[in-house]
């Protein structure tokens, strides 16, 4: 999977003719917007496996799934960010159309469910506006949003899921 992604990226890079430093992103849709994470944070992308809902957890934790022999939590960022539009119910018939990004950070891994095939995109660093210049998103910690890539007519919001993990943004304890 990773090798394939690398291939795709290289291809992409040949297309985008912009000199200067670039960062490689995995782009996915949340609600109507495009979001992205740096490719280094993504361990793999898998078609959504069977997800077992876990009782007594916050709504944005879809459940736990067996991903290559490892039990991981799968979260739904649309719910986490509080987008109140109708989210995709992950029933078995819809499962095939969604994917899970496996984010890995040191010993911690977590799955993020996305609705369509994520794509790769290389964006020059010069095209990224850092977050402090942009309007603060209503329900996200500013430090979770690293910036906005504004290129080729697309507006891609860069989020830092590792930062979310570090901040303990993703929690279960309602009782705490």
């Amino acid at each position: 999977m990773e090798a394939k992604m690398q291939e795709m990226l290289e291809e992409k890079e040949r297309v985008v003719e912009d000199t200067g430093e670039k960062i490689q992103l995995i782009v996915f849709n949340l609600a109507a917007e495009e979001y992205a994470v740096p490719i280094e944070q993504v361990k793999e992308i898998v078609p959504t496996p069977k997800i077992s809902p876990v009782p007594q957890t916050p709504e944005y934790v879809v459940g736990i799934a067996n991903i290559r022999g490892q039990v991981l939590s799968v979260i739904n960022l649309e719910k986490k960010f509080g987008f109140h539009q109708e989210t995709h119910v992950l029933t078995s018939d819809k499962r095939n159309s969604s994917f899970v990004l496996v984010i890995e950070h040191e010993d911690t891994s977590i799955g993020v469910v996305v609705n369509q095939v994520p794509t790769t995109f290389a964006v020059p660093v010069s095209k990224i506006d850092s977050s402090d210049q942009m309007m603060q998103h209503s329900s996200m910690d500013a430090s979770v949003i690293k910036g906005v890539a504004n290129t080729q007519g697309r507006l891609i919001i860069l989020i830092d899921i590792l930062r979310m993990l570090e901040l303990g943004e993703i929690k279960t304890n309602r009782d705490s």
């Binding site: 009782p55 934790v61 022999g69 039990v71 939590s73 993990l165 929690k171 279960t172 009782d175 705490s176």
Partner: peptide, 20 residues
Amino acid sequence: LPYPLEGNVLLSGTTILGTG
């Protein structure tokens, strides 16, 4: 239980069955 569910009070853990 995987991160971030370690604190779940109802469950002590998980196991993967032969069926996956």
